[in-house]
């Protein structure tokens, strides 16, 4: 047996210990919460409007900096910083929802009738402009763009940054917070889609906009609301990432100028694996991608080995397998073609 094979076998034996399984599962769930929150907006926007929003990563980054700024300003320290986070999350959500709605009305709406290639080019253009504007804003505030922005991280309550041990497994307080927030977000989005008038409108419009219009539903307004809410969700996910320096897919976390690119690709993986436009699919795929990420991190980035690129590769292998086996995704109802 070669050295590499021995390391692999040892790793597999190690992961089968119950405390390791619990630790990896907690990590998987916390990552899944982030993946779901990032991808939820993307999939709802695509499902209803049919626009593949390449600016989604940049909007997530905008949420990270805007929310991070709010936390840095209002967090008083201690447990109250958690309250400050929630207040900042609501404010960030509202600001980005309004901004997203305005963006949809002013820039995206005029090209709805064009081919998806126009959607991609336009949203890519918006992403570049947003990235530059965020960079200019951060520079003006004397924020280092390369390293994780420390101010919001410093404002995090101690009990979230502390590492705990339970049933032999180690995890951060932030992991539990992310899991709780992710679960709350999933429940709220589900209730919005399934128990509100606008949720009903959204599900109807996703299927047949013309019939929805003929029933008196204001489809353009529904599109604007959905786009805004999707952007707002991305912003809240960005806030969480500003706190989480562990990051996703083996990449460093925290608010940096790389955040937009770092979250865009996994968000697309989650949306494609789950099925374009399916929120249920996004939840399942988010859990799956979170699990793959956590297991890959555990196996390939530890005290024995450090192959930090492998978690990212593992996630894209999942994407390739999903596209090869079930191109429409787990819950997707149709394949998408670009003419």
């Amino acid at each position: 047996m070669t050295g590499t094979e021995a390391v692999f076998v040892l790793s597999v034996v190690e992961i089968l210990r119950p405390e390791e399984i619990v630790g990896v599962l907690i990590d998987a769930l916390s990552k899944a919460a982030l993946y779901i929150m990032i991808a939820a907006g993307l999939t709802i926007i695509f499902g209803l409007i049919g626009v593949v929003n390449f600016a989604h990563g940049s909007l997530t980054m905008l949420g990270a900096y805007l929310g991070g700024l709010l936390i840095a300003i209002i967090a008083p320290g201690g447990v109250l910083s958690l309250v400050a986070f929630l207040v900042a999350a609501v404010i960030t959500f509202l600001i980005l929802t309004v901004a997203g709605g305005m963006m949809e009305k002013a820039i995206i709406k005029p090209i709805y009738d064009r081919s998806p290639v126009y959607h991609i080019l336009l949203t890519l253009g918006i992403a570049f402009v947003l990235d530059e504007l965020i960079a200019i804003g951060a520079t003006l505030l004397d924020i280092d763009l390369i390293s994780p922005w420390q101010d919001p991280i410093d404002a995090m309550p101690d009990f979230l940054s502390t590492t705990y041990t339970a049933v032999g497994a180690s995890f951060r307080g932030l992991d539990i917070f992310e899991i709780v927030l992710g679960a709350v977000a999933v429940v709220l989005i589900w209730l919005f889609l399934n128990r509100t008038k606008y949720g009903l409108y959204i599900r109807a419009c996703t299927e047949d906009t013309e019939m929805a219009e003929a029933l008196g539903i204001n489809v353009p307004r529904t599109f604007t609301i959905v786009f805004g809410v999707g952007v707002g969700l991305a912003g809240v996910a960005g806030m969480l990432l500003a706190w989480d320096i562990q990051g996703l897919m083996g990449q460093s976390g925290g608010a940096t100028i790389f955040l937009s690119a770092n979250v865009l690709l996994p968000a697309f993986v989650v949306v494609i694996v789950g099925g374009l436009g399916s929120f249920d699919g996004t939840v399942v795929a988010g859990l799956l991608v979170g699990l793959v990420d956590a297991v890959a991190m555990w196996l390939f980035v530890n005290e024995i080995v450090d192959f930090s690129a492998l978690p990212e590769i593992a996630i894209f292998v999942l994407l390739i397998v999903a596209l090869a086996v079930r191109p429409r995704g787990i819950f997707g109802s149709k394949e998408v073609t670009i003419n």
Binding site: R203, D208, M211
Partner: peptide, 16 residues
């Protein structure tokens, strides 16, 4: 007919 196939019968009615 064009019912919203992914909505329930009751939801199809409520929306109208």
């Amino acid at each position: 007919r064009r019912p919203f196939t992914q909505l329930t019968v009751e939801e199809n009615l409520r929306i109208s």
